[in-house]
Amino acid sequence: MVTTREIATAVVTASLIFGAAALAQAYDGGEVKDGGTISGTVKFAGAPPARKTIEVTKDKEVCAKEKHLSFDLVVGPDKGIENAVVRLVDVKKGKKWASTKAELDQKGCVYRPHVTVVPAGGELNILNSDGILHNIHTYSKANPSINKAQPKFKKVLTEKFSKPEVIKVACDAHAWMGGWIVASEHPYIAVTDAKGAFSLKDVPAGTYKVEIWQETLGKSEKTVTVKAKEETKLNVELAKK
């Protein structure tokens, strides 16, 4: 009888270990004590190009209330790049996502924010504040592409992106509209502000690869070592390729 029990215990233990191993493949969110911070700025190398003015050709009463400038590369006064995405690449363990939802608004025929971060598998509420016909057309590979109409009467569309991916979103009714949805499985991801600044908090001590991505400048990768309770500076310059 004793042997049977032993075998049973061993089987249970083994399954627990294997289960844990399977989980370890994906991101494992929990509590982080004594985490460090990565912060810094993303700047443009060289003379920043001026933002192009976009001509609004349609639905002017709604879309042309403000002057439209292109969003593909926004460089601030100190050459800080807005809307660049900074994220850890190979992080397997760390803090839990605080939120499970994100929101993207279509206002004045502009996607606000231009880059929306959404937890992979979480819900993205897409609002239509304009009250005119927009459509959400995504171009993705890992997730299924969607193309859904959002007419006036449809105030909110809720979508899920189950796999981590950088997804382009466009509106076929308003050709100039373009934005990005970044689905991430972990919370160590930031979009730079108008000054190009970002910070990633509560990062467990260790060495990480950090990916910096901007839609026109592409990707670059840095390696950063984070020490407990310390702030690590990371300043990156991106140049036109």
Binding site: T57, K58, D59, K60, I132, L133, K152, F153, D172, A175
Partner: peptide
């Protein structure tokens, strides 16, 4: 007020707003 089909579709001589690409 609903599907706003003619935002993109032409209807005979009635052309949608914006450039023909759209």
């Amino acid at each position: 007020d609903y599907f706003d089909c003619f935002s993109c579709h032409q209807q005979g001589d009635k052309k949608p707003e914006g450039p023909p690409e759209g």
